[in-house]
């Protein structure tokens, strides 16, 4: 995969295909980006499991925080990494030791570790780096256009409204809350 530029279809397939997301580096601070993303993904119907050793055993947004990926009692579809690029390497290695391999490794905006990405891709995982799933979901659903952001999506189809006012699903395919 060329990690400088992802086709929309690649991102859309990932966001459509995963259900359980482990969010590494989740913060309980309500103005941190990791809190935003956790809250947003929950509102879109994903099961999001916060990972943060300092918060282990506590809850963020009603979700029990675990100290590490290995402590998560269910299979994880996607690991979303809110750590710096170097630290992301160890997170990927930990993910690749899980009994059930995740399908996707996602590194947040400004996080990029090409060596770790190769390790994951060699095991058949999909990798996204230097992107935010909240922004990508908002972009592909068209929601982000409400804030004047260039979604780069054109469509003459009527958008799908999901439950709740002002909530849209992904524009052309089923979203996880269906």
């Amino acid at each position: 995969m060329n990690h400088d530029s992802y086709p929309d279809t690649y991102i859309r397939d990932i966001l459509d295909g995963v259900k359980t997301i482990a969010l590494v580096g989740a913060s309980a601070n309500t103005v941190r980006p990791s809190y935003f993303v956790l809250k947003y993904l929950l509102s879109k119907g994903y099961e999001v499991i916060p990972i943060n050793p300092g918060q282990a055993g506590k809850e963020i947004l009603g979700q029990t925080v675990h100290a590490s990926l290995a402590d998560v009692p269910v299979a994880i579809d996607m690991v979303d990494i809110f750590r710096n690029s170097e630290a992301a390497g160890a997170v990927v290695e930990e993910a690749l030791r899980l009994p059930t391999l995740p399908k996707v490794i996602w590194m947040q905006l400004s996080v990029r570790n090409d060596a770790a990405a190769r390790l994951a891709e060699d095991k058949g995982l999909k990798v996204v780096m230097d992107r935010c799933p909240k922004i990508e979901y908002g972009r592909l659903s068209g929601e982000i256009g409400w804030t004047g952001v260039n979604s780069r999506n054109l469509s003459a189809k009527r958008p799908v409204l999901k439950s709740g006012f002002q909530h849209r699903g992904l524009a052309t395919s089923k979203s996880p809350q269906d």
Binding site: T30, V31, Y35, F36, K39, Y40, S43, G138, E143, I144, W146, T147, G164, F165, Q166
Partner: peptide, 14 residues
């Protein structure tokens, strides 16, 4: 909660 998310810039919306 939706209102709080919007005012806190945590959700896209009007």
């Amino acid at each position: 909660d939706h209102a709080a998310s919007l005012f806190g810039l945590q959700a896209f919306g009007n």
